[in-house]
C-alpha cells in the first residue's frame, strides 16, 4: 500500500497553471513533478483522485530510490501527451509490445537497474514501461541456453535431481 503523508504547504510549490505533485523516494528525496507528466501512471492518477476529495495537500511516498524514480519521470516526460497503445486497458496482450527506438536507448542500462525500473513501473502501473522493460529483459536472454540465462540474470540451478529430469523436460524435438 502506498504511504500518503500530510505535508506543509510550503513543501509543495504554489498553484500555477499546471498542478504539481510531490513524490518522495525511499531515500527521502523530494521530487516535484507536474501532474500531467505522471498521468501515465494509473497508480498516481488514483492517488490524485483521492486528493481531490480532501482539501489537504499530500505527498506520495514511493518505495524506490530517487535514481529509479527520476528514470521513470524521464520516461513519462518523454511520452507526455502521447497515446501509447499498451497503456490502453483494451490493448494487445503481453508479448506484443512494440519496439520503440527511444525506449531501447532509454533502457540501455545494467541488469539491476533494468529490474528496478520494471519493478517501479509495475508499482506505478505504467503498462507501456513495464512492456518495454519486459521486452528488454526478454532480449537479454534471447537465443541463450538455460545456463547462459542463469548467468545473465544471476540465478542458480536450484532444481533437485528429480525435478531436473522430470519427463516433461525431455521434449527437445
Amino acid at each position: 500500500m502506498p504511504t500518503i503523508v500530510s505535508v506543509d504547504d510550503s513543501t509543495v510549490p504554489g498553484e500555477g497553471s499546471s498542478r504539481l505533485l510531490l513524490l518522495v523516494s525511499s531515500d527521502n528525496k523530494h521530487i516535484v513533478v507536474e501532474e500531467d507528466i505522471m498521468s501515465r501512471s494509473r497508480f498516481i492518477s488514483k492517488q490524485v483522485e483521492g486528493f481531490e476529495a480532501t482539501s489537504q495537500r499530500h505527498a506520495i511516498l514511493l518505495p524506490f530510490s530517487s535514481f529509479v524514480l527520476n528514470k521513470v519521470i524521464e520516461y513519462c516526460s518523454h511520452y507526455r501527451g502521447y497515446y501509447l497503445l499498451e497503456d490502453d486497458p483494451d490493448a494487445a496482450p503481453p508479448g506484443r509490445s512494440p519496439v520503440r527506438e527511444w525506449d531501447q536507448e532509454f533502457l540501455d542500462v545494467d541488469r539491476n537497474m533494468l529490474l528496478r525500473i520494471i519493478k517501479a513501473a509495475h508499482y506505478l502501473e505504467i503498462k507501456s514501461l513495464v512492456g518495454s522493460c519486459a521486452r528488454a529483459i526478454a532480449d537479454m536472454i534471447r537465443g541463450k541456453t538455460t545456463e547462459e540465462m542463469r548467468e545473465i540474470l544471476g540465478v542458480e540451478n536450484d532444481f533437485t535431481p528429480e525435478e531436473e529430469h522430470s519427463p516433461s523436460s525431455k521434449c527437445t524435438g
Binding site: 496482450p93 509490445s97 539491476n112 529483459i137 526478454a138 544471476g154
Partner: peptide, 21 residues
C-alpha cells in the same frame, strides 16, 4: 537475486515474449 524480487505477473510478461533466436 534481483530478478527474484519481481512479482510473478512481471515474470509472466517477460516470458510472453518469444526469446527464440
Amino acid at each position: 537475486s534481483p530478478i527474484s524480487h519481481l512479482p510473478p505477473e512481471i515474470l509472466v510478461h517477460i516470458f510472453s515474449f518469444d526469446t527464440t533466436p
